[in-house]
Design a protein around this nucleic acid. Structure first.
Length: 112
DNA sequence: CCACTGACGAGTG
DNA sequence: GCACTCGCCAGTG
């Protein structure tokens, strides 16, 4: 397979973290990068998600930006709508501005 | 090797 | 809340 544990693509590292996101929760790009051990590479996280193809076991729709908003894909407006509905279906609520209540739904390994 | 691009984040005014 | 700047790094031509 194209996966060498010795030469892991940065992407695989992000996918592993995203896969841990529990249902009904969301995580930010920066958070994923930090958990993956690549703090500061939030941009790379987005780039990795864009490379995800269909069939991936990665809940990419649970990844949003630090603003609590669903990032837009190059496909233009509308693409983010699909992601939003997927989250709502999992129980994640949005406000009138189309933002997620991070203080309420952001994934936290330790409840406060 | 160089220039440009890109699902971002944080800081500043 | 909005506009602008800088940083970080992989992929592509």
């Amino acid at each position: 397979m194209t996966r060498d544990a010795k030469a892991p693509s940065s992407y695989q590292r992000f996918y592993a973290v995203i896969r841990k996101i529990p249902r009904g929760r969301v995580a930010t790009y920066g958070q994923i990068a930090t958990l993956a051990g690549l703090d500061g590479q939030a941009r790379q996280v987005g780039y990795a998600l864009a490379a995800i193809g269909r069939g991936s076991a990665v809940p990419w729709h649970r990844v949003i930006n630090a603003q609590g908003r669903v990032s837009m894909r190059s496909s233009g407006p509308g693409g983010s709508i699909v992601q939003q509905q997927l989250l709502e279906r999992e129980g994640v609520g949005f406000d009138a501005g189309g933002r997620v209540a991070l203080t309420r739904y952001q994934w936290r390994r330790r409840s406060r």
